[in-house]
C-alpha cells in the first residue's frame, strides 16, 4: 500500500473525498448566505434552519405522502423558498434599513422557533431516510471506493453553484442583483420593483440551503438541530471568503472542506477547529476576506 507522509493513500483519499463533500455543502450554504447578504444586507441566521427544513421536509414528504427523492429535490426547495418569501415579507421587511443586529436577532429567533417546534414533534434523535436504490453501491477507483451518492452530491452541488454564479454574473437578472447590492434605491428609481426583487432573492437564497438539505437527507442524520451545527462553520466559511462575494463563497466552501478533511487525516484532534483557525488568520491579515472587496 502506497503511503504519503506516513498515511496510507486510501485513507488520505477517503478523507479528501469526505472533505470535498462537506465542502460542497459549505459552498451551497455559504453561497445562499452571500446572495442574501449582497442584496438585503442581512446576516441570515435562519439559514441553518432552512437547510434543516429542506432535509426534514424531504423525509416528512416521503413518510406521509410517499413523495420520492427526485420530486423532493425540486419540491422541498420550492416549499422552503416559499417559507423564506413569507419570512421576508412579514418579518424582515419591517426592519429593513435598521442595524444588522436586528435582522441577525430576528433570523436567529426564527431559527430557534422552527428548531423548537420540530424538536417537539420529532425529537432530536434523527429521522431515517433511505438512500434511493439507484445510488446503492459505488465504483472502485483502485486507490479508493467512491459511493455513487457521494459523487452525485458533488456533481449536483457544483452544477447548482456554477449555475448560480452564471446567473448572477452573466445575465440581466444577475445585473439587477449586482446593481441592487450597490444602490437599490437608484434601481427602484429606474422602475425596477426592488421590494419584489428582495423577496425573491431571499427566497432563492434559502432555496439553495433547502436544496443542500435534500442532498444531505440520505447521508447525514436528519434532525431539527442539524442546521445549527453546520451554520457556525458556514459563517466561518463566509467570513473567510469575504461577505457577499459569490465566487468567493463557492471556492472557499470547497477549500475549507478539503482543509478540514486533510486535518482529519494528519492531526484529527484539530479537525473541528481548523476552519476557525483559518478564519482568525484571515481576519488578522485580510479583514474583508480572501475574495471580498477591500473596504
Amino acid at each position: 500500500m502506497s503511503m504519503i507522509f506516513g498515511v496510507p493513500l486510501a485513507v488520505l483519499a477517503g478523507q479528501l473525498l469526505i472533505g470535498v463533500i462537506n465542502g460542497a455543502f459549505y459552498a451551497l450554504l455559504s453561497l445562499g448566505l452571500a446572495v442574501i447578504f449582497g442584496l438585503l444586507k442581512i446576516i441570515n441566521f435562519a439559514h441553518g434552519a432552512m437547510y434543516m427544513l429542506g432535509a426534514m421536509s424531504t423525509v416528512i414528504l416521503f413518510d406521509s405522502l410517499g413523495v420520492n427523492y427526485w420530486v423532493a429535490l425540486f419540491l422541498a426547495p420550492l416549499l422552503v423558498g416559499a417559507v423564506g418569501v413569507v419570512i421576508e415579507y412579514f418579518l424582515l421587511r419591517r426592519i429593513a434599513g435598521q442595524d444588522h443586529i436586528y435582522s441577525l436577532l430576528l433570523t436567529f429567533g426564527v431559527a430557534l422557533l422552527l428548531g423548537g417546534v420540530l424538536t417537539n414533534i420529532y425529537g432530536v434523535s434523527g429521522l431515517r431516510y433511505a438512500m434511493p436504490d439507484v445510488f446503492q453501491g459505488g465504483m472502485k477507483l483502485g486507490f479508493m471506493f467512491l459511493p455513487y451518492y457521494r459523487l452525485w452530491v458533488i456533481v449536483m452541488a457544483l452544477l447548482v453553484c456554477f449555475g448560480t454564479w452564471f446567473m448572477i454574473e452573466k445575465t440581466k437578472l444577475g445585473a439587477y442583483l449586482r446593481a441592487g447590492t450597490e444602490d437599490s434605491q437608484l434601481m427602484q428609481g429606474f422602475g425596477i420593483n426592488v421590494p419584489l426583487l428582495i423577496s425573491l432573492t431571499y427566497g432563492f437564497g434559502v432555496m439553495l440551503a433547502a436544496f443542500a438539505g435534500v442532498l444531505a437527507a440520505p447521508i447525514y442524520s436528519v434532525t431539527p438541530v442539524m442546521g445549527s451545527h453546520i451554520l457556525i462553520t458556514v459563517f466561518a466559511v463566509v467570513v473567510i471568503g469575504g461577505m457577499g462575494s459569490i465566487g468567493g463563497a463557492i471556492i472557499t466552501g470547497i477549500l475549507m472542506g478539503v482543509i478540514e478533511g486533510l486535518t482529519k487525516t494528519f492531526y484529527p484532534p484539530a479537525s473541528s477547529a481548523v476552519i476557525f483557525l483559518v478564519m482568525v488568520v484571515v481576519l488578522m491579515f485580510r479583514p474583508s476576506g480572501l475574495f471580498g472587496k477591500e473596504a
Binding site: 434605491q185 427602484q188 428609481g189 429606474f190 422602475g191 425596477i192 420593483n193 426592488v194 421590494p195
Partner: peptide
C-alpha cells in the same frame, strides 16, 4: 406611489 411606479 413607490419610486418604481413613478419611474414607470
Amino acid at each position: 406611489c413607490a419610486p418604481h411606479h413613478i419611474a414607470r
